[in-house]
Design a protein around this nucleic acid. Structure first.
Length: 855
RNA sequence: GCGCGCUUGGCUCAGCGGUAGAGCACCGCCUUCACACGGCGGGGGUCCUAGGUUCGAAUCCUAGAGCGCGCACCA
């Protein structure tokens, strides 16, 4: 193992990234050995970064956390399965490809194998088929991926780069479609025409997980509904008068004495004179507004609940583009006591957006006298698509769903089974699962993504027959139903009566991301790999996507494998800017990761990241990076000192050396158990504190002895102890500072430190014949510090000679001191040292005359 | 509204039942012999508040405040 050291004259950090990146790649240091059995493997489900974005310090932060664990596990002897993925699926890539190549996707077009985009995008976008569009995406993202890979390598991520995947590539599409077909066969996936949350700008359904609430101004409008039988009105408050035409009932709480007499009676809507019943439902809040509300199809998800549970009819007015659609009053479903007046009131609203329609309706209600008071402004929370600009509407459409509600208890149990780091992040998952209010809508009316592998028959009259559903054989996957043809049909029959059409939708990106373990582990494809890697060990990710990525991945494994997808979830926090706000690109904060890595060194930046504990939001702080860089520098210099002399071999016998090794053994135990518990910050903290004391106290105490001032045996003891300690410390630091540690390791050891065995306390104790006396080392350090203080107060250099020192302390501590007396005197340059009994440590000194002072 | 986290020196944080800690910043001192990309020494804190448990509380319990976050907030 140990060879004669080759220590550079002036060690430097510069250039270590390039040197070791190349060496690790050449030697295959991080290559996954797939012959190892499952319990010798540590499998990590790495988050695939979105390639159409750019990497920022937040990525550097959380990916470093993962790498710390990977490196620790590898040194512990586990074969680390650590592939990297690229997320090129979804809207951001869709937009980027459109602009870059000057194309737009038209799923109705056939695939053109010869298509090439123009060199420069034209003014008019060229329409291309979905498969052509996806080809362009893959082509563009390959370039992005190179940049990302270079940064990750420079940061020192110990990834096996021979195993990368892309979420839009064929293998991922295959897994995604296969998993869908399996769910479909078992009834866990189903299609339904139902009211769904809908973004009117993107013109697609969205899922609960993609919603966010925003505070918006609104206003209560008090409207008068005339009772159908006789005189009197019912007053209701609404924030959405523009939906009056869609009103199908009024609702109050069943216990509300004010409205109990009205249950079962009916009223007429203002303007449209539609007769609607007054019904009771416990969701109605007597405290809100007038205590009785109008139910519209559909103003919000409560309306959907009321509509479903009270079995009310549908009168939909909001269209997919967010405008009000045409209605024929008096026709079936649109009955009115005065159809002519209703039509006259409604017609001006057709084609208006909700906002414009509201102003018009208010105008009409004011004129008719049904608006009982001026609108009362309020602010309230409105649901938005997280990427959207206008409030979501609820539009009835045909969508695919995965069952979640039926599995709520099972999913909660999975959450308890999963080991969370930190533990308290489980609460977020439970909040989310308990708050689920519907099955997961997984279809999107977009172009770029994984298509549903489904075709439908076309009836003789040209209508799509959704009951006649056709799916491909599993062996055919992946397919694109917009260009592939179901068995027994020809392309000529596409869209023809008696023929077929493909399902036009694509899957939610989370529907593909949620099978990342199945993609990387070779589910249904590479059964050997699957058996060695699944269920995986660790899912690392940030806390903001617990409800999306983490939740959906747990769901998919629960449904497909009846297991967790991984045993541990390591949750990273966010990087906050110095003002404690979430760091974001829009802030104009142009700190590029590569710039930081170059300025502070990858080890320095990693040090900063490692100081951010699991789940903890952490301030962006170049000060910490500087400290990390200084630590790396110190490691170089301390190693140079320790290895700088030919070591006399010999037993470790000196009390100071034995005490050091005892403390070192304890450190190894503490760091190891901390890392096993994913407490990488604590392990670093302890190792770092030990290392600085090793440098500042221990090395100073033994410096003279190791130079041979007290004989060869004393020197051999010091040399052996400091070399063993250095070997252990370098290995303890290796996950954090992979570059400088491998550099130092290469001076005297063969092979990479990253494949070296993780140190053990047993290894350290085996080198020391007897246990060290911790008090001896402690007293040595305290006396040395007191001598330094005396020199500092006397404003003399640390090398100044002390003619005579008196050390006073308790008998027990003085006895311990005798073991370390010679080392302390050497370190303090003390000529004569006497001890006296006392009740606590006190040191007095007399300095030697300074040579030049009297001349 | 429900839940989670945080609150310790100027700053960033560790400690989580036994005499208040680190780094940075600050002040002073020290350069041939591992390191000035440095070293040594020093000053600085009623550990958010109020109760309680305990021989003993920064640490455990209860209540509250402030900050941050998650979920739900629907007429």
């Amino acid at each position: 193992m140990s060879t004669s050291p080759h220590v550079p004259d002036s060690p430097a950090l510069e250039g270590l990234e390039a040197k070791f990146t190349a060496r690790w790649e050449g030697e295959g240091t991080y290559r996954f050995d797939r012959t190892r059995p499952r319990d010798a493997v540590y499998a990590i489900d790495t988050p695939p970064p979105t390639v159409s974005g750019s990497l920022h310090v937040g990525h550097v932060f959380s990916y470093t956390h993962t790498d710390l664990v990977a490196r620790f596990q590898r040194m512990r002897g586990r074969e680390v399965f650590y592939p990297m993925g690229w997320d090129d699926n979804g809207l951001p890539t869709e937009r980027r490809v459109q602009n870059y190549f000057g194309v737009r996707c038209d799923p109705s077009l056939p695939y053109d194998p010869a298509f090439q985009p123009p060199d420069t995008p034209g003014k008019q976008p060229i329409a291309v088929s979905r498969p052509n569009f996806i080809e362009l995406c893959v082509r563009l993202t390959v370039e992005d991926e190179k940049v990302f890979e270079h940064l990750w390598k420079h940061l020192g991520l110990s990834i096996d780069w021979s195993m990368t995947y892309a979420t839009i590539a064929k293998p991922s599409q295959r897994v995604s479609q296969l998993a869908f077909l399996r769910l479909l066969a078992r009834g866990e996936a189903y299609q339904l025409e139902a009211p769904t949350l809908w973004d009117i700008d993107f013109k697609t359904a969205v899922a609960q997980a993609e919603l966010e609430d925003r505070e918006m101004p609104g206003a209560y409008h008090r409207l008068a509904f005339r009772k159908a039988s006789g005189e009197g009105v019912v007053e209701i408050d609404t924030t959405r008068p523009e939906l009056l035409a869609a009103c199908v009932a009024l609702v109050a709480h069943p216990d509300d004495a004010r409205y109990q007499p009205l249950f079962g009676t009916a009223v007429h809507t203002p303007l449209f004179k539609a007769q609607v019943p007054i019904v009771a439902h416990p969701l109605a809040d007597p405290e809100k507004g007038s205590g009785i509300a109008m139910i519209c199809t559909f103003g919000d998800i409560t309306d959907v609940t009321w509509w479903r549970e009270l079995k009310l009819p549908v009168r939909a007015v909001i269209q997919a583009n967010g405008t009000l659609g045409p209605v024929t009053w008096g026709s079936a479903g649109w009955e009115s006591a005065d159809a002519v007046a209703a039509q006259a009131a409604y017609d001006p609203l057709v084609g208006l957006s909700a906002k414009k329609a509201q102003a018009k309706v208010v105008e009409l209600l004011t004129a008719s006298g049904d608006l009982l008071a001026p609108p009362r402004p309020i602010t309230h929370h409105v649901k938005f698509y997280e990427k959207g600009d206008r409030p979501l509407e609820i539009v009835t459409s045909r969508q695919w769903f995965f069952r979640t509600i039926a599995h709520r208890e099972g999913l909660l149990a999975r959450g308890r089974e999963l080991q969370w780091h930190p533990e308290y992040m489980r609460a977020r998952y439970e909040n989310w699962v308990n708050g689920l209010n519907g099955d997961w809508c997984v279809s999107r009316q977009r172009f770029f993504g994984v298509p549903f592998p489904v075709w439908y028959g076309v009836r003789a009259d040209g209508a799509i027959d959704y009951e006649r559903r056709m799916v491909p054989a599993e062996s055919q996957l992946p397919i694109d139903p917009s260009t592939d043809v179901p068995a027994g049909f020809t392309e000529a029959q596409r869209g023809q009566p008696g023929g077929f059409v493909g399902d036009p939708d694509i899957m939610d990106t989370w529907a593909t991301s949620s099978v990342s373990p199945q993609i990387v582990c070779g589910w249904d494809q590479d059964l050997d790999l699957m058996a060695r890697t699944f269920p995986m060990d660790l899912r690392p990710q940030a806390h903001d996507i617990i409800r999306t990525w983490l939740f959906s991945t747990v769901l998919r494994a629960h449904l497909e494998h009846d297991s967790l997808p991984w045993r541990h979830a390591g949750i990273s926090g966010w990087v906050l800017d110095p003002d404690r706000k979430k760091m974001s690109k829009s802030k104009g904060n142009v700190v590029t990761p590569m710039g930081l890595l170059q300025e502070y060194g990858s080890d320095g930046v990693r040090y900063w990241a490692a100081r951010g504990g699991p789940g903890v939001d952490t301030a962006f702080d170049v000060g910490q990076m500087k400290i990390g860089r200084r630590l790396a520098m110190k490691l170089l210099n301390a190693s140079k000192f320790v290895l700088g002399r030919e070591a006399e071999s010999g037993a470790i016998t000196a009390p100071v050396d034995l005490a050091l090794l005892s403390a070192l053994a304890d450190l190894v135990d503490e760091a190891t158990s901390a890392l096993e518990a994913y407490e990488y910050t604590r392990a670093l903290d302890r190792t770092e504190a030990f290392f600085w004391s090793f440098c500042d106290d221990y090395l100073e105490l033994v410096k003279s002895r190791r130079y041979g001032d007290h004989g060869p045996e004393a020197a051999a003891s010091a040399n052996a102890a400091m070399r063993l300690t250095l070997s252990v410390l370098v290995r303890l630091f290796a996950p954090y500072l992979p570059f400088v540690t491998d550099e130092v390791w290469s001076w005297w050891q063969s092979g990479s430190v990253h494949r070296a065995p993780w140190p053990t306390a047993a290894e350290v104790r085996a080198a020391a014949p007897v246990a060290g006396d911790a008090m001896a080392l402690a007293v040595a350090i305290e006396v040395t510090t007191a001598l330094r203080r005396a020199k500092s107060e006397a404003k003399v250099g640390m090398k100044a000679g002390i003619a005579r020192a008196v050390v006073r302390d308790t008998a027990e501590r003085l006895a311990a001191f005798e073991q370390v007396r010679s080392d302390v005197c050497a370190a303090g340059n003390v000529r004569e040292l006497v001890t006296e009994a006392g009740d606590r440590l006190a040191v007095e000194v007399v300095f030697e005359p300074v040579a030049g002072a009297t001349a």
